[in-house]
Amino acid sequence: MNTFGNLMAMLIGGAALGTMMSTVPDYNSSFQPFAVFAGEDGTGKGRQFTAELAGFRRADVISFTQFGQEVSRDTSATFLVVDLSITGQLESQKLTPIWLGATGRQYHQSARLEDAPRVLSSATFQPGLTDRTVAIFEVPEDEIVGGQLGILPSGWMVLDNVVHYAGPATMPDKQAILRLEP
């Protein structure tokens, strides 16, 4: 009976390990980075940065100037623009924003606006300096109210934080054309 018990324990342990190893995403990355939540004042602190959420805006078209040329981008959805102030802590750090929509879908920042001024994913945040920045997502309107903003370090995320911010309680005002300035 004792041998049978040991054999069963070994088989159950092997099956549990096999399940964890074959899960996609693997069980380890499911728990990393660690989630922390911003306070009610809109300020959240990760290991490498402090970010203050200043507000949300919506637009049908975003325009900006690049190398002296006027650039304009439109969308069949809605541009959700999140204004932030971010301070670096210990090391120069690049950050990645994600929008966790109200329906559970996850959105990355719009790649068509990577060249816009002050875009978060193109910026590097330096220790001791606070910079204004914007995260821009293209989302369906029903993803905005009830959604969440997540900011996480780019690249290596083991033992690091993703900071979550509550989305707007009501639909932000919509501008036909939103101009982004440096």
Binding site: Q89, L90, E91, S92, T124, Q126, P127, G128
Partner: peptide, 9 residues
């Protein structure tokens, strides 16, 4: 204080 700045690109 152990803060580290990397070069700008």
């Amino acid at each position: 204080n152990g803060r580290m700045w990397l070069p700008l690109q």
